[in-house]
Each structure stands twice: as structure tokens, then as C-alpha cells.
Simulated assay, not measured.
Amino acid sequence: MTDHTPATALRVSHVELYVTDAEAAASAFVDGYGFRVCATAERGGGPEGASRSLALRQAGIVLVVTQALDDTHPAAAFVARHGDGIADIALSAADAREAFADAVSRSAVPLAEPAERDGWVTAAVAAGFDDVRHTLVQRPAGHTDTAVPLPGFEPVAEPAEVSGEPVGLTVLDHVAVSVPMGQLAESTGYYERVFGYASVYEELMVQGTEAMDSKAVRSPAGDLTFTILAPSPEHDAGHLGDFLERHGSGGVHHLAFATTDIVTAVDRMLERGIVFLGTPDTYYDRLEQRLKLNRHSMAELRKARILADEDHGGQLFQIFTRTVHPRRTVFYEIIERAGADSFGGGNVRALYDAVQAEKAEH
């Protein structure tokens, strides 16, 4: 059982992306995914450099896109190394000073000592993989607007209306991370040791000559899950190796956004211009034999190319966007859970088998 301490009581605040163009990045989330810009920040000079940030929200998901305006801001070095990507998974704290001290006492790597500004207290520790960080955020007393994520942000007086039908994304389901071979235990152990996360899933997934080790760890509050993947030493590195090479290190390769109706969400995202990965018809021919669907029809899934899987708790439905990143790294997942608590491992195998079967027919 997890000890209840300041470091284990942290919850998700927001996810920050470092980008080359904040306006363009924000527009992509607004136009394609149905987010709304709700706050902005301009930070000038100083030791941490100058930057421009926009905060976006949809239901319980808050994203921040930050562009460096000079070479001293950390976003400049991050983008030079990785391209646009997820740099900070920020965590809300009732007392950031206590949470920081507790995390460091549990061997968290400190990055920024607690500092106070306008009633906010922030600090930062390293994440369990490469140069991603966790900013700890303590809001001023009585501050309840979660769309304003950090000190220095000003709420947008009249947020623009989102064009088109609402997409219906609800919360951040999980964060998927790739780490180099041999670092899986170290990365997941960091979260278990420092933040009291629990292991909820573990599997070696083999696909032909490729394989990846995977383990998912979840926060005590249940609102943040990391699925961490590493190439298996006995197999080819495959697409994980490709990500590590293109990204320049380990890091977040996708965010999974939850929805309560994936068929509607995907349909509305397609109307907005989002392109999803394709799935061969063979997958759906075999899916009819593999699963008895408890919601959505086979025709609906086939039309939208949505994947379905099942575990002891129920079913899940998921689909992945095609990456538009210049390095072909970061992408996004849309997921609907109908009782399932896993992450679609059965789909990895089923998709591989379907692709192989389709190749054999041609």
C-alpha cells in the first residue's frame, strides 16, 4: 500500500510542449482536435530566457505550447535536439515546497528549487526518462481556474468559439514513452520509488523479428499513467529504435486522449482534417472471430478504422493519428474504455498478423 505523502498526492496539472511556432501548434490543436485557447503568457529575458506560451483546454485536458524567443530559453535547446515535443508533465501540489522536499528525499533529481510568484509556488524535478521534467505547481489560495496553468498567464477574455461540432475528448488517458534498451526498469522504478506509482501492466510484445518490453505504472490518484516501452535486447529494435534515433533520445512518443464515444470523436476529427493510421480489412475479418463487441458495430469500426481489444475488465477502442512531425516522431491516440484497463496489447499482435496475412494474399 502506498504511503500518503506530499510526493504521492500529486495530480496532473497540464502537459507542456516545446515548439518552434506556438501559434501554429495551438492552431493545430484547435482546428484538428477541438481545443480552445484559454490563456497566454509572454515571458521576457532573464536567466530563463524569453518565451511565448498559449494554454489550451478541452474538458479535463490542459495543454501548453511554448516557443522560445531567444536561445537561452530551454525550449530552444529542446527543439534543436528533438524537434517539437512533450517537455513537461506538470503536477498539481497542495504544497509544492513539501512535495519537492519529499520527492527529493525519495531520490528525485531536483531541477528547480521552490520559488514563489504572485501567490503561486513552483518547483521542478526530473522525469523518469531523458530530459522531460515535472513542474510542481501550487496555486494561490482560492484559485480554481485550471485553464490558467502557471504564474504569468493571463486568461483570454473571450475565448474564440470552437468551429465545428465538439470532438468530445475528456481526459488524458495515458502518456506513452520510449526509453533506450535496458532502461525500462530504471524508468518505471523511478516513479514507483519517488511518487508511489503502482505497476498495472507488464508485457513483452513480440512481432516477428521485432519486440518491445512494456510496463505501465499509475499514480496513487489514478489520474496519470505512463506506459513505458523499450526495445528487447533479443530482438530487432523496430519502430521503437526508429523513434529513439529520430527523437535523439528517450521521450514521450504519444499522448492518449480519452473519449466516451470514439466513433463520433473520430468522425468529427476526420472532418477537421486529422489523418489516422490505416488498418487492413483483414484485421476486421479476424476481429469478428476474436471479439463480440459490447458497443459500436463492426461496420462502424471498419468504416473509421478503429481498433478493438478486450481484457478481464471489458473492452477498449483505440485509433492512432498519423504523425505530421517533421521527424515522424510524436503522434496522438484516441481511446474509449468500456471497462478495460489495459492498453491494446492484443491489437499490436492482431494488427501484425493482419498485415502479414494481407501480404501473403498478394
Rank of each mutant, 00 (worst) to 15 (best):
A50R: 15
L287W: 04
E98I: 00
G238W: 01
R52E: 14
V64G: 09
K292S: 14
G32M: 00
R52T: 14
S342H: 12
S107R: 05
A157M: 09
S199T: 15
I334C: 14
A108N: 01
A108S: 00
E245I: 06
R328V: 09
A176K: 01
L91G: 06
L10P: 06
T321A: 05
E310K: 08
T20H: 14
D242L: 11
H362M: 15
P180M: 00
L172C: 11
A28V: 10
T259N: 04
L69K: 04
R322L: 15
S187H: 08
E116C: 10
F276M: 04
A77T: 11
R117D: 13
V330F: 10
G273F: 00
A87H: 06
A55F: 03
E154L: 15
P233S: 03
M181I: 02
V348C: 01
R337F: 05
H247S: 12
G344T: 07
F257M: 12
D71F: 02
G60S: 15
I262D: 08
A24T: 13
A41E: 08
T225N: 05
P166A: 13
G152S: 09
E165Y: 03
G314R: 06
V65M: 00
N294K: 11
D71L: 11
D236T: 09
R117M: 11
A90D: 05
G128L: 03
P180E: 03
Q138Y: 02
V62R: 13
G278R: 06
F195E: 00
N294R: 11
P155I: 03
D223P: 08
V156L: 02
E48P: 06
T188M: 07
R305P: 09
A115Y: 08
R328M: 15
R322H: 12
A157E: 11
